[in-house]
Computed example of a mutant assay.
Amino acid sequence: MVVALYAGAVATADVWMPALARAFAEAGLAVDLVRPGDVPPEAVEYIVYAPSGPVTDFAPYTQAKAVLGLWAGVERVVGNPTLTQPLCRMVDEGLERGMVEWVAGQVLRAHLGLDRFIGRHTPHWEQVAPPLAPERSVVVLGLGALGAAAVWMLVTLGFRVTGWSRSPKAIEGATCLSGAEGLEAALARAEILVTILPNTPETTGLLNARTLALLPRGAVILNPGRGNLIDDEALLAALDAGQVAQATLDVFRTEPLPAEHPYWRHPRVTVSPHVAAETRPASAAKVIAENIRRGEAGEPFLNRVDRARGY
């Protein structure tokens, strides 16, 4: 019997624990799923973890073979000095599908200019058709599992897609760039810019006054990645100057976004309340089960975090 500790949010334990139990049973795993305090820490073999949960000190879990995250982001735990066990982040079908659908919907909204029609209640017959997808350049920053899936969807829709990542990648149908020079080249062609980057020291403030100025004038920014990526003051200035025509933001440096934040009142900003890529228990639990199966079989874990890179 394998002992796994549920160390996610206490408020959602009644949802997660049954989903995990079902996934373990379906995978044929004999797992004793416990809560903090049910067993001594040294009896725990796997920690099912979320930063919103009760575990902050991993040192007592001396026999834990892995910390299996329920969140895609690991920035709140990857630097924890007590964390010596392998750390795996969550990448699952539901989370990926949610991101793809959000990106596809928001890109099409910007591409088709739907904001011109939504909420209009006065006669205005302007029969101007938008360009077709092959005439629109869309750039995706970040080509991890979620970014690559978004690129694939946008390519399927027919857009001219460029992807950028720190290290070289290849995705069929898209132009892939990397490194500092590649970033500047990508931004220069981004009529619609989608950012799906992790939260690392290298990505903090990546979109600032200098880099926003590289965008084609009137570009649209969609950020379902991480809030730290954007210099908020620089983006607001770019919006006011018309350099950026519109921004739809799903993530922020402080969440929930404070009521006094200028984004709430800016006419060219849409606030989306961090819903682009929500972890779904039914599908995510299967990933946890598979990683426990792998751990017990001596196989490599899925989605293991590279501590040096921070994701």
Score class of each variant (00 low, 15 high):
Lys286Ala: 13
Leu33Ile: 04
Ala245Asn: 06
Leu302Ile: 13
Leu141Gln: 03
His124Tyr: 13
Ala238Ser: 12
Val3Arg: 07
Trp152Asn: 15
Gln63Trp: 00
Ala170Leu: 03
Val140Asp: 13
Ala25Tyr: 03
Gln85Ala: 12
Ala277His: 11
Glu296Ala: 12
Ala4Ile: 00
Gly98Tyr: 01
Ile230Asp: 08
Pro258Gln: 10
Leu206Val: 04
Glu26Ala: 15
Ser52Thr: 15
Arg210Gly: 05
Ala174Lys: 09
Trp16Gln: 12
Pro41Ala: 08
Pro267Asn: 12
Ala247Ser: 11
Val269Pro: 06
Gly28Asn: 10
Glu172Gly: 15
Thr122Ser: 12
Gly28Pro: 08
Glu101Ile: 01
Asp32Cys: 03
Gly94Ser: 01
Glu181Leu: 03
Met153Gln: 15
Ala72Pro: 09
Leu29Asp: 06
Thr200Ile: 10
Gly242Ile: 06
Ala245Gly: 14
Arg189Ile: 11
Val77Lys: 03
Cys88Arg: 01
Gly105Tyr: 07
Ala308Cys: 02
His266Trp: 05
Arg109Lys: 05
Pro60Trp: 10
Val15Gln: 15
Glu255Lys: 06
Asp231Tyr: 04
Gly28Ala: 07
Ser165Met: 04
Arg120Cys: 07
Ala289Tyr: 08
Ala180Gly: 01
His121Trp: 14
Phe24Gln: 04
Gly37Val: 01
Pro256Leu: 06
Ala237Ser: 15
Tyr6Met: 02
Gly298Asn: 11
Val67Glu: 01
Glu191Thr: 13
Ala150Ile: 04
Arg189Asp: 14
Trp71Val: 07
Leu157Glu: 03
Val161Gln: 09
Leu87Gln: 04
Phe58Tyr: 15
Leu20Ala: 04
Leu207Cys: 12
Phe117Pro: 00
Arg76Trp: 00
Thr162Glu: 07
Ala297Met: 01
Leu68Pro: 09
Ala129Ser: 13
Ile192Pro: 13
Glu299Asn: 08
Leu143Ser: 08
His274Leu: 07
Ile288Arg: 09
Pro51Cys: 10
Thr82Ile: 00
Asp32Asn: 14
Tyr49Gly: 08
Ile221Leu: 15
Gly205Ser: 11
Asn199Leu: 07
Leu95Met: 14
Ala145Val: 14
Pro273Phe: 09
Met17Tyr: 00
Asn303Pro: 02
Gly225His: 02
Ser178His: 15
Glu181Trp: 00
Ile47Asn: 07
Ala276Arg: 09
Glu172Gln: 14
Gly79Gln: 09
Ala219Val: 10
